[in-house]
Structures are given as C-alpha cells and as structure tokens.
Simulated assay, not measured.
Amino acid sequence: MAKPATAAKRPRRERGSINPDDIIAGAFELAEQVSIDNLSMPLLGKHLGVGVTSIYWYFRKKDDLLNAMTDRALGQYVFATPYVEAADWRESLATHARAMRKTFMGNPILCDLILIRSALSPRAVRAGEQEVEKAITSLVEAGLSAEDAFDTYSAVSVHVRGSVVLHRLYEKNRAAGEGAHQLEDAIIGTAESTPLLAKVSAEGHRIGGADERNFEFGLGCILDHAAALIEAGTKSAAPKSRRKG
C-alpha cells in the first residue's frame, strides 16, 4: 500500500506573516516532495507552518492555488535552447525539440502544470507566442511558406508534448503499481503467430512507447517532410527566377 503524502513540519509562523508569494513558493517545494496530485491545503499549511485558514484567505480552493502555480511556471519557464536558425533550421529545430523534451522529462512539476493541466489553456499559448513567432519566422526564411512553417513547428511541439506526457503517465502508473502491463515494458508478439512483431519487439522496439527511439524516429519524419517541402518550393521557384533574368 502506498504511504500517504506527508510534509516536513516547520516552526509555526505568526498570524498574518504569510503572503501569496510565500504560499506559491511553498506549494512548489511541497509538490517536489509529494507531487501535484497529492498536494493539499492541509499539507501545505503544515509545510509552511501556518493554519490552513491562512492559505484559504488567499486561495479559496486547491484549483485556485494550482492556477497561480501554473501562471508562475509559465511566466518563469524558458527553454534552455538556442532559437531556431534559418541557416541551420533542421539541426537547430531538432536541438530545440530535444531540449524541450529533456527539460520537461527532468521536471515532473513543470510537466504536470504546463503540459497536462494547462495544455489547452489560452494563457499557456500566450506565454510562448513570441518564441513561436521567432521560430516560424526562421522557418519561413529557410524556405517554408508561413502555413507550412506553422504546421511544422506545431507538429514538433505536439510530438514533444505527447512524448513527455505519455512518459509521465507511464511513470505515474508504475509508481501506483500499475505499470506491469504498460507498452514500454512489454515484449509483444510470438515467433509462431507474429514473427516480425516478436523480432523487433525483442530488439527493443516499442509500439506506443514514449522512449528515445520512438521520439527520434517521429522527429526525423517531421523534419524530413519539412525538408521535402523546402526542396519542392525551391524547384518551383527556379524557373521564375530564370525568366526574370
């Protein structure tokens, strides 16, 4: 049986000594220990050394606190990766994608708040729109139309987020003792009924697994398609250039 979430007890604060910033910072500290799912107002009060009513004064329910945590995560989160460069669009976009994935994979709290909880939130979109604009501009300079540049970056973003979220859900299930039948663990197929499936599965390939192999294969497919679009656009533009000459 899983142990209930607990928080380290601090000396009790004086009444009125807590503020929203302290509460949010403490919530991040506590979430690192017990996870976003197990974060609760009573646990947070114990962690901060205040009565739970002091927290409810600023955040009437857990969802309000999670909204504030998400806003802070979105405001402070910056991908540790160089911008997508037009002159080296393929490698720089691949590096950007790998850095995004590495950052989220290494921080479950960011993943839970930004990718899972706020995946469809308008504020999540707005928080990164300047970075997306720069990436799309570089892809247009590299030879894609604005529409294809947008779709390419969007596909990379969805691929990264999908890979991270699937891995995060797998980790949650495994922690809960439900991971034995996950696709990331399973070798599927038999030599008699599905020999090809059994062969590649035994070699480490996984259907639906959010592993490095599947991530890199999918990323390569997106980049290959973008490269083909750029090449096709270059070829179609060449006759026009010659006629102008």
Rank of each mutant, 00 (worst) to 15 (best):
H167A: 12
I136Y: 09
G179K: 06
G189S: 01
S157T: 14
A146P: 05
V164T: 00
L196S: 15
H205M: 07
E129G: 03
G128L: 01
D148P: 10
A135W: 04
E203C: 08
E131P: 04
A124E: 04
V132T: 13
G162Q: 09
L169R: 11
E131C: 02
D185S: 12
N173H: 11
A127H: 05
R161P: 04
V140S: 05
A198C: 05
K134T: 09
K172W: 06
D148T: 11
V158I: 11
A202W: 05
G179N: 08
E133K: 15
F150S: 07
E192P: 04
G177M: 09
E133W: 08
L166W: 09
A127F: 01
H159T: 07
E147H: 15
E147D: 15
D148K: 13
P195L: 04
V140R: 15
E133I: 07
S154E: 04
Q182G: 12
S201E: 01
G128S: 02
Y170M: 08
K172V: 10
Y153K: 06
V165D: 00
A175W: 06
G143R: 07
T190R: 13
L169C: 06
V140M: 14
V156S: 03
A198S: 09
K172A: 01
A142C: 04
V132N: 01
E203I: 05
E192K: 13
G204S: 04
G143S: 06
R174Y: 05
V125N: 09
V132R: 15
D185A: 09
V156N: 04
L183M: 14
R161W: 07
V165L: 00
A186P: 05
S154V: 10
D148V: 02
V200E: 01
V200I: 15
N173V: 02
E131V: 12
K172S: 02
A198T: 04
L183D: 11
N173I: 01
R168D: 00
H159K: 03
A198P: 01
S201Q: 08
G143K: 09
L196I: 11
V164G: 00
R168F: 10
H205I: 10
R206W: 05
R123S: 13
V158M: 05
A176T: 00
V158W: 01
D148S: 14
D151H: 15
L139K: 07
G179T: 11
G143P: 11
R161L: 00
L139D: 04
Q182E: 14
E178Y: 15
K134I: 11
K199F: 10
E171K: 15
R161Y: 06
S154Y: 14
T194I: 06
I187H: 10
E171V: 12
L169E: 07
A146F: 05
R123E: 13
L166P: 06
Y170S: 14
A202T: 14
L196E: 13
R168N: 01
H159E: 00
A142W: 13
Y153H: 14
E192L: 09
E171A: 15
T152I: 08
S193D: 13
R126E: 04
A191L: 12
R168S: 03
T152L: 02
H167I: 00
V125D: 01
A146K: 14
G204I: 04
S138H: 10
A146G: 07
A186L: 12
H181M: 04
A198V: 00
S145D: 07
R126W: 01
G162E: 01
H205G: 00
L144A: 03
S138P: 08
Y153Q: 02
A198Q: 05
T152R: 02
